[in-house]
Write a protein that binds this DNA or RNA. Sequence first.
DNA 1: CTGTTAGCGCCTTCAG
DNA 2: CTGAAGGCGCTAACAG
Lengths: 347, 347
Amino acid sequence: MTDSQSSTTRPATISDVAREAGTGKTSVSRYLNGETHVLSVDLRQRIEAAIARLNYRPNQMARGLKRGRNRLLGMLAADLTNPYTVEVLQGVEAACHALGYMPLICHAANEVEMERRFLQLLTTYRVEGLIVNALGAEEDVLRPLRGAGIPAVLVDRTVEGFEADLIGLDNTDAIETALAHLVAQGFDAIHFVVQPFEHVSSRRVREAAFRAALAARGLAVPSTVVLDLNEPGAAAAALADVDARIDDAARRGVRAALFAANAPVALAIARHLRARFGAAWQQQAALLSIDDPEWAELIGITTIRQPTYEIGYKAVEFVHERIDGAAGDVRVAMLPGELIARASTAS
Amino acid sequence: MTDSQSSTTRPATISDVAREAGTGKTSVSRYLNGETHVLSVDLRQRIEAAIARLNYRPNQMARGLKRGRNRLLGMLAADLTNPYTVEVLQGVEAACHALGYMPLICHAANEVEMERRFLQLLTTYRVEGLIVNALGAEEDVLRPLRGAGIPAVLVDRTVEGFEADLIGLDNTDAIETALAHLVAQGFDAIHFVVQPFEHVSSRRVREAAFRAALAARGLAVPSTVVLDLNEPGAAAAALADVDARIDDAARRGVRAALFAANAPVALAIARHLRARFGAAWQQQAALLSIDDPEWAELIGITTIRQPTYEIGYKAVEFVHERIDGAAGDVRVAMLPGELIARASTAS
DNA sequence: CTGTTAGCGCCTTCAG
DNA sequence: CTGAAGGCGCTAACAG
């Protein structure tokens, strides 16, 4: 009984298996690649036994080197702290599983430098495709991909000057649905709150759609509140602005409604209002948010839930097709959101 | 001007660079590996230029194949939905960056099958080390690692029969601190709620520590409530049990305190109590939880915050040392938690 | 200082 | 049905 599994032994190679099975590497390779019908039963069994005995696992790296493809699929996430991202991730993982890819997840943690670095890495590891939830609009950060000829699909946001398939929420429709709900509930002082949006396409679209939807109804369009969560000072000012609008409405005897462009914004607002008004803050202002984080139900916030799983799944299908050589125009898939009405917007 | 960056061109190789620079592959390799002082200024510049011109990036796979190490570090996460995991991840990423590893993140999404599959994959990709936040206690799932001689470090939980470095929260101390807080606030009907814990060491330790801490104070030790979040039926029963205890205490004119073993449990409880008592549910029962998710502050829940970032960072340092050949006994690092007192446990 | 020569582990013609 | 030989992109002795 040889100690073939000792942790000091270096992993068995295909040659080891061949020797152990008393055959050549070619046959082992054939076995590994499922060309099992080309092998005599006897040989196949010997190989099987040898593999088991040596606890052999083919080295993917070597395989990739030879075949020119390694089944690695990169996923660059801007912010895993955002539940949205994790949910998308689940779809990505499921699709990777189904299509035989190994997802290589990289988390930029909201830092452009990280994003750049990971993109480099992903490139040097020769991932076959990439799913990008980009941080900034910097097209040059994505340039390496072009050079390496790695197909990419954008999730949630486009990147200025970077042509690629895009998949995300149908923002215009989502905003329209949400606004219709608010209006139906009788709100007329509705304020849009969003993180700095010039450089993030989805935020830009949402903001524009909100204004358009308001205008289409002949309602006044209050200025958009920009809430920069990365700048404490600016954030405080923005929240003060929110406060003012709430007070304004209150003076007119109405309850203001706040429309958060995404969950992080909604959380910041909720925290602030709770600090200001106490646990019963929702009596002072209504809140609606795009994204449906776990705490939304906990405190009864109306939301637009994104089809996150589908977004992730489809994203992988898109790159997969590109990897398989699909040429053709850039595709855009905009999936519909779903309104989850809760107490925060009850009239 | 050649179209060296066209997306149809296959990535440049070291040979291409050598040819372009009019030299041999060796020199290029030396350049890549920073042995820059061994090269004549002229040659170095030619290589530099060639690399830039061809937009060359060394193929990590090939490097890894040759050197026997690929700088890949696996991280197997049981549940990215749990904020704890994401926070640990941030520490892992930072440490990987600092030590020159590429983190390969795998998400088992609470499915043992996934866990097994990823472990296989990680093995075939020959990651140099692995950080495991294991799902179950199945030692055999981790067996492949042994066979491949891949060093691993466990995060948060041990695995029966699997010897490896461990890093996580000092559960005993955390429980003691939290309980002391509750007692100081005047609570005496304190109930521990935890997911099925036989197979998860951290839960087991917490449960035991809770009972011990209670007993040490001469207080009665109510039976532990087991809340299985994956079994709707069982979960409902457990929550009914919680209800009964709250009612019991109420009959005695006191407010029961619920001690959640982690954030998912706390969330389930909070949701349930809100559904039962409405927004003011906290007047009916106190709640304290280990883990400090973002919504804890939002609704004012007292928590024990884990040093998640440090846990992740140190985990990487641990494997790194093992990869570097450090032998020696299994190490255990238990980091202290921090009590964040909020309104939910005010007396 | 620089280039030549072997492989790393695997797959893929191409002959048996 | 089976095996030997060559090469994927890169590094690591060896020579110059």
